[in-house]
Write a protein that binds this DNA or RNA. Structure first.
Lengths: 120, 120, 120, 120
DNA sequence: TTTT
DNA sequence: TTTT
């Protein structure tokens, strides 16, 4: 069967690396994907799509991308469920990336931004 | 920006037509998409993906498809949010179809199944 | 950058396995993909798309598929060029598969068909 | 059946508008799509994919894009055939776009470049 | 809440 | 919880 997703959009935040209990690198990012048509109010709507990146893909994205970077992601849709603190089953759907491409010109390094911030 | 999904899988239920307050036909279906590799326990895992179909697409799917029909869907991922009865914001993610293709041999009509059931 | 193709269609012929000079298995197949709208003459048009399968993917397809089998292929578009016998450069475009899924019910074995043919 | 292509790459030339005999706008462009892995010589290979754009899509692309612009195209693969001047059948495969997105920062206007050229 |  |  086929489950294939292609996204191009902007990162809504600086991506952050987490490490699972098994020592595997992960990053959860959300992509802002603006549509190319306007709704009845003349506004461009944008979809916000959650994505999960693993290992090298996560590490590279955290290293090379920032809030606002345009990124191309291919992967598949996945729904996981867990029990919340009230014992209710909660469903979470996201795109598990198998590939991430960096499409916008190299963003500022974090260091530079920190310096810039400390000077303003 | 790009937000493009292609799915091929089986309907987990007979699809049902609903009509919105504005008189528009909708159907919510879920697709069982088995992966083509096995997990560490040697089992084929399957992803369950929720899809929303509108108008003619909804009507045709309800008319021609049944539980188990193999269906190809193209569309885009969308996340909506609403407040649940406890006033908490709940996020729901699904695929809004722009096209549905019927890929398995014509399934039994509902009538036939009712007859078959009443005879067994 | 992104180069991603998803096809679902029928094999136009029984697939055949070839072996390259380096001993690698290949199969060249063409997929008949009918469109889901009619042209101005009320006919459903169909696109014929050439695909190249390598190694295990080629072997499995040759083993499990026949003319008419519905198959889902994901891959990328590639253009190769070569000089023909007249020294003219010829360009050939096809889809290099990274994945093939078998979507139609198991087709007849070749042996069975041979037997059937010899009995008719 | 399904025939779906997603490309992100750079235009190899300034796109040009042509008008068919029926008065319809067309543009033929080719996209340079670099792969994200290296071949055995350590080089990044790039695929060159021909695309055909129609009407508004053609007009907008010619107006807003230049050689080098990063562009996202969705569409379907199509093979046409024609007889060449020697009476031989020639097959041409390209991607017929149903959507084009402009992904790189606004490129220079053609006028500006002409001015710049005339001043250097 | 899951399909063959 | 949202990006330019």
């Amino acid at each position: 069967m086929i489950n294939q997703v292609t996204l191009v959009g902007r990162l809504t935040k600086d991506p952050e690396l987490k490490i699972t209990q098994d020592g595997i690198a992960v990053a959860n990012v959300t992509l802002a994907v603006s549509r190319n048509f306007k709704n009845s109010n003349g506004e461009v709507e944008t979809d916000f799509v959650q994505c999960t990146l693993w290992r090298k893909t996560a590490e590279n994205t955290v290293q090379y991308c920032r809030k606002g970077t345009i990124v191309g992601i291919t992967g598949r849709i996945q729904t996981r469920s867990y029990e919340n603190h009230e014992g209710r089953k909660v469903y979470v759907t996201d795109v598990v990336a198998d590939n991430v491409r960096f499409l916008s010109s190299k963003p500022q390094e974090r260091e530079e931004k920190v310096i810039a911030a400390s000077q303003s």
